[in-house]
Design a protein around this nucleic acid. Sequence first.
DNA 1: CAGCGGTGTTGCATATAATGCAACACTCAT
DNA 2: ATGAGTGTTGCATTATATGCAACACCGCTG
Lengths: 257, 257
Amino acid sequence: MSQTVDRALSILPLLAEGPADLGRVADRLGVHKSTALRLLRTLHEHGLVYRQSDQRYRLGARLFALAQEAMENLDVREIAHPHLIRLNEICGHTVHLAVYEEGEVLYIDKVDSRYPVRMYSRIGRPVAITVAAVAKLLLADLPGPERHAVAEKLDYPLYTARSTPGPAAFLTELATVREQGWATDLGGHEESINCVAAPIRGADGRVVAAMSVSAPNVVVTADELLTLLPLVRRTADAISGEYSGRTPVPTPDRDSA
Amino acid sequence: MSQTVDRALSILPLLAEGPADLGRVADRLGVHKSTALRLLRTLHEHGLVYRQSDQRYRLGARLFALAQEAMENLDVREIAHPHLIRLNEICGHTVHLAVYEEGEVLYIDKVDSRYPVRMYSRIGRPVAITVAAVAKLLLADLPGPERHAVAEKLDYPLYTARSTPGPAAFLTELATVREQGWATDLGGHEESINCVAAPIRGADGRVVAAMSVSAPNVVVTADELLTLLPLVRRTADAISGEYSGRTPVPTPDRDSA
DNA sequence: CAGCGGTGTTGCATATAATGCAACACTCAT
DNA sequence: ATGAGTGTTGCATTATATGCAACACCGCTG
């Protein structure tokens, strides 16, 4: 809608691929170098872009801070977190929390007592949308037309032999999930990893988030993992209750501080 | 430099404070509603802004993905990570990695075997710059004028009785740190928490990052923590060596995959 | 059910603000 | 030294963002 801003914002994903110099940015944008320079300068002033010692540009620090604050504004996450912790303490497995937004499903929280390493590497990352148990729940709740539209547009990478092969199979799976109110991923993403997931609903019954428990075959079999289903559902329901129960005052005294 | 982009980007920190509706955004920007609308639309198309069900805008999902990718492009982080893990396995305490950028210090990695909870809540977060051990190391290495300028501009919140009170004390501390090549924070941020930190240097000797080990008093006393200093320094030196040793081929076959 | 404030949205004329150009600075290699 | 490569600046030109005013769309309330 606004050409200048559009161009400026296009620089961000470009730099996400790796640092680039002025010429490269100008080329990729299809604009004159001086134009690219001014856009980069503006991004720089806002801290979204950083100029490293070799003069090349890369994404800046402010981006982290923004993503951070954005994350902390998600009230589902805040409410869910202690529940995820507790679930993790009980079963010991990895616990995920995910939301749907504009065609993407992404993890917004994770607790993993066994492998604390690289925890951050998944939070904020798009989920393997065609196979992840949480994704199935979130997509299954979309209104029919949107659900079909999304399903058609997706890629269906064959991570394993049990990955969802295409739109038809996916929609069938979504129908099942919608029906039963929970979902699984049995080796569909990584051969040896299984997940069970349950939906978190708002006051109007719509699915606002989904949570899952994941564990590798070597720790528990799929069948054993499934015995956790009631626990997972109970946890999800508890979060749902708390989430839809009372909307905490949306006007914190942030400004007066 | 570019007014339109400047305004558009000003929306982001505004939304970071919390969701806002069109009127509010327009007011805060000092522009007409229609202008704000078009800017928001552009941000929306790029996924930086999301329109929630009540029509209000908040920061969008793409922001996470961008921050994520930006983080993974930091080669110091990549090189350091296994070392941090190893250090954590040996001593069991929280290990941080931080960098300096344009007046801010921020954590870019963390390993904590004891308290996996809310791990992400710190990564990407600005550090308590006047007291954190890593911040001291990073600032101590700045060229004199910049160091003084930054020190003057900072706020000096009194987290505890031992927090750095002001610019003069801070600059003195930085001189000491610069001299000795390592730094501590003994209860300066949180009464019961101590840290020891060491610098990671590039080939030219400049400090490119800093790492620290933190532990609460209840686990080890400050004196006990200090006995880890040689280990921390050795780890930091190992990372420095690897970092400045060879610059790994900067053209990964990302595109061909 | 009609009327009304609030909020979001569109088309359009105006003028501002972004653009590309060309000339200039700078760094680094040879 | 000399030249190629890259980044930077001032300026005229025109495209582009802007504000306006009118309209559409709620949810309220009388």
